[in-house]
Structure formats: C-alpha cells, structure tokens
Amino acid sequence: MKPAACGGWGVVEFLIAIALGLLITLLGSGLLVASSSNYRNHSDNAWLADGGRYALSVIGQAVRHGAYVNWDSEVAAEEPETASVAGLDAASISRNAEGISDPLPPVAHGSDVLALRFAGADDGATINCAGFAVPAGVRGWSIFYVAADAGGEPELRCKYRGAAGWGADAVVRGVESFQVLYGVDTDVPPDGVPNTYVNATAVTAADAWKRVCSVKLALLLRGAFNSRADTVPGRFDLFGPAYADAHPEDVGVRVAEASLPAAEKLRARRVFSLTVALRNRDG
C-alpha cells in the first residue's frame, strides 16, 4: 500500500505568497500615508479657520475701541488732539519699547504694524487687546505686529501697556503676512467717509493720521505641515490682484508659493480680511 502524499507549499507557491503579501502591505501603506496626509490637511484647514476668525475678532474689537474718548475724564479735552491710529509698513517692533518707537526689521513677507489708542474708563468698558481693563485718565494701547516665536514660526502678537510696563502676547501662529491699509477722509470739510485706502507710508507722508476713519486689514495664515495633495503653486493677493498690480512696492500684499522654500510650499493657506470703521470721536 502506497503512503499518503504529504501536503504543503512548494517554493513557487511560497514566493507567490510573499509577493502578494508585499503587494498588499505596499497598498495598505500607501492608503495609510494618503489618509494621514488628508487628515493633516483637514486639521490644518480647521485650525486656519479658527485662528483666522479669532485674530479678526481681536483686531476688530481693538479698532472699534480706537478713538474712544471718555468725556467724563479731566483730560478729555486733550485726547482728540492725538491721532488714535498709527502704523508702520514692513516692520516689526520690540516687546518692551515704548509704543512703536523702536522699529525692527520686518518678519514674514514685510508684515505691518497697527497701533490703536483709546481713553480708559472706570467702568471697565474699555479693554486693550490682551483683555485688560484700562482705567480712566490713561490712554490705552492695542498694537499688533508679527514676530517669530521660539521655534522660528511667525506669529501675530498683541502689545499693550500694563501696570508693570509693556508686554506682548501671541494671538495666532503661522502668520505668513499681516497687511494694513488705512481709509483716509480727504474731503474738506471731512465727512467721516474714507475716499481712498493707502498704506502707512502714504498716510505719514501726507500727515493724515488724524483723517483716518477706517482700517482695512488682511492676514495670510499657513498650516504647520506640507499637507496639501496638489502641487500647483498658488498666489495670494491679500487686497486683491488690482491693488497688488498697482502697488508692487507694498511688500507682502502678494505672496507667491513658487518663491517659497520647499518645506513651506505645500502648506494649507487661507486669507482672512476685514474692514472696520473707527469710532466717531464726536459721538
């Protein structure tokens, strides 16, 4: 009687099984990488939406506080003599220096500096950009500028003067560009309606800071990783292509991904913009 044949895999079957296993592993790894990249991109975009909305909310509130005059204060008659808004183009500032008196080289595509002043009040109704109340008889400051954090990532900061001196807190990270235009009322007599929007350099040249009646600002935020699936370089015009074409000297109003380092080209990006009227000082 013949012995029963032993079952098992031959060399050929074993090699085929290994090849199929490697193929499945490769496909699974590709799906995992794609899923991880999509998750990061989705997470970055969600973070951009939250960060952009928060930054606009903080700056918008500060602009609306700008030009506030406490008419019950003893120094109310002096307050309207000082411009309530000021700014610098393509600059940063020191955390501890007085106001914007110590300009530093710009950070993140020539980002600007926006400074707002307002009167304090004893009822706690006026607060600076850090959320601290400004008492009556004191001129409050809310100053926004871009600086690099400890890891080198550009962030929008809020600078203010507190009881212990000047300080600054981060508002949002990943600020690729922060740009500001000022609505100037050129009518004689002024009617409180902006006739043109220009940058800080033009306002200073025209000695027109007291005629600024609104502020237009734009933020370009970026995610933390190269998480985009597309590889087509984009272009971001913070105030629209018409303004960027007409003002090539205004650094930072146009950011082209093609000119960025490879480690930053494929990050999620989004522009946030806001136009806010300053308070009517006579109201």
Score class of each variant (00 low, 15 high):
1 M>P: 07
1 M>Y: 10
3 P>Q: 08
3 P>R: 11
3 P>V: 10
9 W>S: 14
15 L>Y: 03
15 L>I: 15
16 I>Q: 09
19 A>M: 13
21 G>V: 13
24 I>M: 15
25 T>Y: 04
29 S>E: 08
29 S>G: 14
31 L>D: 01
35 S>W: 08
41 N>M: 11
42 H>S: 11
48 L>V: 07
48 L>R: 01
53 R>H: 09
59 I>M: 10
66 G>H: 00
68 Y>N: 06
69 V>Q: 00
72 D>L: 14
73 S>R: 03
74 E>Y: 08
78 E>K: 12
81 E>K: 13
81 E>W: 15
82 T>A: 14
84 S>M: 11
85 V>T: 09
85 V>L: 05
90 A>R: 02
92 S>W: 04
94 S>I: 05
95 R>K: 10
100 I>S: 02
104 L>C: 07
105 P>D: 13
105 P>V: 13
106 P>S: 15
110 G>K: 05
111 S>D: 03
114 L>S: 00
116 L>F: 05
118 F>T: 06
119 A>I: 03
120 G>P: 02
123 D>K: 10
124 G>L: 12
126 T>W: 05
126 T>C: 06
128 N>W: 05
129 C>F: 00
132 F>E: 13
132 F>V: 12
133 A>F: 02
134 V>T: 13
142 S>W: 02
142 S>C: 10
146 V>W: 01
146 V>L: 02
148 A>W: 02
149 D>Q: 12
152 G>R: 11
153 E>T: 15
154 P>I: 13
157 R>F: 09
159 K>C: 00
159 K>E: 01
160 Y>H: 08
161 R>C: 03
165 G>K: 07
165 G>T: 12
166 W>H: 07
167 G>E: 05
167 G>Y: 03
168 A>S: 15
169 D>R: 11
175 V>F: 05
176 E>H: 10
177 S>C: 09
178 F>M: 05
181 L>P: 01
184 V>G: 01
188 V>R: 10
194 P>H: 11
196 T>H: 06
197 Y>D: 06
197 Y>K: 06
198 V>G: 05
203 V>K: 00
203 V>C: 04
208 A>R: 03
209 W>T: 06
210 K>Q: 13
211 R>Q: 11
213 C>P: 00
216 K>D: 15
218 A>M: 11
224 A>H: 09
227 S>T: 08
227 S>V: 08
229 A>S: 12
235 R>Y: 05
238 L>G: 02
239 F>E: 01
241 P>F: 14
244 A>Q: 06
244 A>C: 12
249 E>N: 08
252 G>D: 07
252 G>T: 10
253 V>R: 01
253 V>T: 15
254 R>L: 15
254 R>D: 03
255 V>F: 09
255 V>I: 15
260 L>W: 06
261 P>L: 14
262 A>W: 03
263 A>W: 06
266 L>H: 07
267 R>G: 02
267 R>E: 04
267 R>N: 05
271 V>N: 01
274 L>S: 14
277 A>D: 13
278 L>Y: 07
281 R>K: 09
